[in-house]
Design a protein around this nucleic acid. Structure first.
Lengths: 211, 211, 211, 211
DNA sequence: GATGAATGAGTATTCATTCAT
DNA sequence: AATGAATGAATACTCATTCAT
């Protein structure tokens, strides 16, 4: 996607454009190499040399594009998270009611996860150094959810006993773990089962206590 | 052979005991140091030297007690997880019905988490190298849950659309994330709120679909 | 052999004797353990802990008997070499002529090597730190040979072109290598073949040049 | 791949060449440092840091050129042995008869040893970890000799009582020890004496038994 | 005399990062 | 912009040796 952005910038000179294109190519090469490697080996398990080698460039080139090993990780993580949020937001905006919206949102998540296995493994993967970034991301995600939930609580659609902040953390944790678990071996459950189960849990607690 | 000798030569007993005591002391010193350090910095972020220094012993002493950096981590993690499982099992055995059992179980978990902050951060923390151990542990935990859920599905207490395996992963992920998030800053929510919210979500999906 | 020496010392008190016997026992235990271990793993490949463990004593005990790791090695090497020299000297003294004496000497060496495999591997084995000791030993051995050769040269039995010092080094190197090579896998040649070949080479150059 | 690129992009040639030259320089620097150090202290007695320091480069640089401490040792040993074999082979090919060939071969060996003191000490030196390499090399050398001897036995030039395998081990051991002994202190014997003595011994046993 | 816990210097090896070309 | 050789701090782990009990 970095590439396509570069193709659209009209104000740069042709000469510069060529240089830019080459630079952008190297950059995206590094990024996709990093995605692949981080996904399977984690932040710690990947060396900058390995990323460069995999991208077919020299070791030093890495540092022409990224200040740090963590910078590229951060960038990948942020970009991916943005993609995921976009998917979920799109669903959100068309949702009519919470009840009706849950399923499409879960579907969106699951489909996105399938299409972005590597990158989901990175985000939902485990890595102490990634934890900080991950936290920011998931917290933002959780905040999104929390906002929606708050409204339901206020409007009485959700019982006050359910704290939106806690609830959102719970949902994020749940989704992250299930997705990671499922991606590790997609034969563990059919996609339908995953979606159905997650949907039902999501709905849980959303109806006011009977008693 | 040391033992049988000790039984016949009473004078060596004090010596052995003293040595044993000293050894055990050093060992537990190392373990608590490790717990503390792992909790805040993760497996990777802690050196064996740091653990030894923190425990007030020489660097080499660490290896007199643990084969590996991962061995001490593993030991701590397994021990803690055993403690947690004990808490949850105790609750399980006294539970009358699933419905009634959920709350005490959540309470047990939350209380345990409060009392074992460091160690919960380790287990529920993120670390690639820890992932394997964590997985074993959480999978075992998830399997426990799954077993219980299966029965409910069979007995019709839970709708078949909910897959026990998926469900258990979801619960574990949910609990782990909420607990970790809450322990990071316990003012984020009152304990009561955490328990109440987690209880309600846990109950979710457990009643057969109305339609 | 250390043990048998201890059993014969009459001047020590009975009380002391018991202590001595125990001490000597521990000591010889350490020595035979060391022989075995050094033979297969070399000086470097063996730790003092390993020797102690193999001997069934505590690590510290080693240092009650030997100042150093190299001391035990040295002692073993010297003792063994003394044994070997004794064998060869015995043969020497009964030899009538050089010609007749070569074969029995070679036989003695080969038989001794067979009966002391471990210890021969140590002496003729490779180890930089052992080299010094080995050199002393082999040089002494070579000197022995050289002395004999010198007489032959003087008496005209051996041509002057053959330098006794060079010759003795050559013989030692030859014997050491063949013995080591053969002990590694005794099926490589029959004992008879080894003896026969070494005997013939030893004889070589001993008769005055024909031309 | 560097090569083919270089053929098409002339401007990169100087750059590559400069880098290559620098790399090669560092490498040979490391190798000669290692030769010197190994010769006096043996494989075990030398640290990679020491090699690097002696070569005037940083510790890590060593690993840019060699996978292992043993790799550089192996390389040095193999290279040297190849050199030695070349010398001896050259002599071999021009030899007319065994008798006439022995002296030049010994001369070649001795001259080579003088010119490659350090490296000969390494090969013929003692080191457990080097033993494997040494064995391969010396065994190959011994095999060479054995092959030649076998022919003599078949053709009746050498008595059947002399086993070619034993004989070759004997020769290698003899040569190795004498050379090492002599190099340690070249005043111990004149070069002529060494050559003459070794030659005569080599010839020994080669004439059929008189009786 | 024996024990064995503790010491701590020593060492191989890795890897993020820099910089001359 | 790219290269890739070089850097050197960091770190896990070993082992000969000591010493209080």
């Amino acid at each position: 996607m970095v590439v396509s952005v570069a193709l659209r910038e009209p104000e740069t000179q042709p000469r510069l454009r060529a240089a830019d294109r080459s630079r952008a190519l190297t950059r995206s090469s590094l990024i996709s190499s990093a995605k692949e490697l981080f996904a399977t080996r984690g932040l710690h398990g990947v060396t900058t040399h390995a990323i460069a080698r995999h991208a077919g460039v020299a070791a030093g080139t890495f540092y022409l594009h990224f200040k740090d090993k963590s910078e590229i990780f951060r960038e990948i993580a942020l970009e991916t998270m943005a993609g995921l949020r976009a998917v979920l937001t799109r669903v959100n905006s068309t949702e009519v009611s919470l009840r009706d919206g849950v399923r499409p949102r879960v579907e969106g998540l699951v489909r996105f996860a399938e299409e972005n296995r590597d990158v989901m493994r990175i985000i939902f993967g485990n890595d102490t150094e990634a934890a900080q970034i991950e936290s920011e991301l998931l917290d933002a995600f959780a905040a999104d959810i929390a906002r929606g939930r708050s409204q339901k609580v206020e409007s009485g659609e959700m019982p006050a006993e359910i704290d939106p902040a806690v609830m959102s953390q719970a949902l994020v944790g749940m989704l992250a773990r299930v997705v990671r678990w499922w991606l590790e071996d997609p034969t563990r459950a059919s996609r339908e089962t995953v979606i159905e189960t997650l949907t039902r849990i999501q709905l849980s607690g959303t109806h006011p206590r009977k008693t």
